[in-house]
Simulated assay, not measured.
Amino acid sequence: MTKNKAKAYWKENIRYLYILLTIWFLVSFGAGILLKDTLNEIKLGGFKLGFWFAQQGAIYVFVILIFVYVRIMNQLDKKYGYDK
């Protein structure tokens, strides 16, 4: 039972990693590069939004995703009994 529990834990962990990394990729590559011209029509603090995402926005999203991952992992640890 312990081996199955560990395998399910790892599988769920990897699934969350894929989701969070996909979000980060979409924000950094999508907003910072692909949608740059469209986003540059909007200003944020005097700067074009596409430029802001390329320079700072992706970093902010990455830091937020780190905190989200920590929270998710704490919940996952409790769910599978690894929080002791």
Rank of each mutant, 00 (worst) to 15 (best):
I64D: 03
L65E: 00
I66H: 00
W52A: 13
M73Q: 02
M73R: 03
F47T: 06
A54Y: 06
Q75Y: 15
L65S: 00
G81Y: 13
W52Q: 13
F53V: 06
V70P: 05
R71V: 00
Q55T: 08
I72S: 13
F47E: 09
W52M: 10
K48F: 02
V70W: 04
V61P: 13
G81I: 12
D77C: 08
L49F: 01
D77E: 08
K78I: 13
F53S: 13
D77P: 09
I72L: 10
L49Q: 02
G50Q: 10
K79E: 02
I66W: 01
V61W: 04
V68Q: 04
I59Y: 12
I59P: 15
V70S: 02
D77H: 06
I64A: 12
Y82R: 10
L65F: 01
F62W: 14
L76A: 01
I64V: 11
K48Y: 04
Q55V: 13
Y60E: 09
G50L: 15
K48L: 05
Y82M: 10
V63E: 01
L65K: 02
F51Q: 09
Q56P: 10
M73P: 00
V61R: 08
V63T: 09
I72C: 14
Q56D: 11
K78F: 14
A54Q: 04
Y82P: 04
N74H: 05
F47H: 09
Y60F: 03
G57I: 01
V70R: 03
I64P: 07
Y82E: 01
I66Y: 02
Q75I: 11
V68G: 12
Y82V: 14
Q75E: 14
Y69I: 11
L49G: 08
F62R: 04
A58M: 12
Q55E: 06
V61K: 10
A58L: 14
V61E: 09
L76S: 01
Q75K: 11
L65N: 00
V68F: 04
K48V: 00
Y80V: 05
Q75S: 09
K78N: 07
Q75T: 06
K78G: 11
W52N: 13
F62N: 08
Q75D: 07
V63L: 13
F51S: 11
G57V: 04
D77R: 03
G50E: 13
V63D: 01
A58D: 10
I59C: 11
V61N: 05
G57H: 06
F51T: 13
V68P: 10
N74K: 08
G50P: 12
I59K: 14
G57R: 03
F53H: 14
K78V: 10
F53I: 07
F53A: 15
N74D: 06
